[in-house]
Design a protein around this nucleic acid. Structure first.
Lengths: 190, 190
DNA sequence: GGGTGCATGTAATGGGTTACATGATTCT
DNA sequence: AGAATCATGTAACCCATTACATGCACCC
């Protein structure tokens, strides 16, 4: 059996192994941890936590604060840990990730070269920025959690980002060169 | 304005610039062309074509066949071409692509090394296969459409695949080595 | 007889984002 | 005064896949 549904609740369980958190905390944490390859919106998180609590996979404790609204802190139960471990064992279904940039480039002949060039340039800049973030984050993680047994796994995901963005930068450069070549070929024929 | 919705109808328009096709044809063609970065199901294609026809962006002609069911052939109109061109100009929204493999590896410390190793190995094999397909397809395209002005754009998308899968292969190898390292470190401590 | 390919389409279901609704505090 | 942050949650909506429904022809 391959994973299909249920990634979201399992992502929540996974994050709650780090520490007990509220839905709001989870959202914050995602952007600082798995944000480069995962996203969850409040519309998923809050109902998701509710559901997990109903199944006994997480426990809810309400923290009352004066002035500020209540915080609903969720912590993972041992049942939750077991559920997470089971899910981690299931092979990953490799599905086609839709890539709109490639779709547009595939039909690129229908518009001017400069339009295509702009798409590629934007993508290149995105990956340049990403690369910097990956490198900086890896450094910071090693400082903040030097002996954490999870650190190697976190670095693995960051290394993925580095390879990915590095490859994309190369491809962008080649593509820009190719677009130039298409342009000059068009001029020569005219 | 960034693209959000409407990629599907525009993908259909794009494909119909190649030649008039039925919904069934489109499904077939996708797997041989944009299948590495795009997918459409019948549940999207048939209603999509209907909608495009209602907007006058495609024209429907019914081809009656004895024995076999009717074929509804759709061809793009000049309005459709204009719509496609407009869409191609809109910058691509760069959204986080969810990656379940990375999500599982991020929480990899909760399961045995071999579980993680298997995820990575499966991914490595996938990219090895993909690389072969990209190379073969590029060769075949150059034979089948040597002078097609769209060829450079098609090759650009294939080149993307090559860079991507190549980078992923490297990462997989590094990751497997890292998993070995984690394992031997664990043994040493015991 | 049964599977596969051709060919169309709808309905149910799932998964997800965005917008809405609320309201206090703190910073500028 | 107004924006941002904290904090929770629901509802509407969009997009997409899967399952269902139909039916002939061809091959094994």
């Amino acid at each position: 059996m391959k994973t299909k549904g249920g990634s979201t609740p399992n992502a929540l369980l996974g994050l709650l192994t780090l520490r007990p958190m509220s839905g709001y905390d989870i959202r914050q944490l995602i952007s600082q941890s798995i944000g480069h390859f995962w996203s969850e919106s409040f519309g998923q998180i809050y109902p998701g936590l509710k559901q997990l609590a109903a199944e006994g996979l997480v426990e809810k404790k309400t923290e009352r604060n004066k002035g500020k609204p209540d915080r609903h802190l969720y912590s993972i139960t041992s049942d939750g840990r077991e559920r997470l471990r089971e899910w981690l064992k299931i092979p990953v279904a490799e599905e086609v990730a839709r890539n709109e940039l490639l779709l547009k480039l595939f039909f690129g002949e229908h518009v001017s070269i400069s339009v295509n060039r702009e798409h590629v340039t934007a993508n290149m800049e995105f990956h340049q920025r990403s690369l910097k973030v990956y490198t900086a984050t890896a450094k910071q993680l090693q400082i903040d959690h030097p002996n954490d047994p999870q650190l190697p796994y976190w670095l693995i995901t960051l290394n993925h980002g580095k390879h990915y963005s590095g490859a994309m930068l190369k491809w962008c450069k080649e593509t820009l060169a190719e677009l130039d070549a298409i342009e000059s070929k068009g001029k020569r024929r005219r």
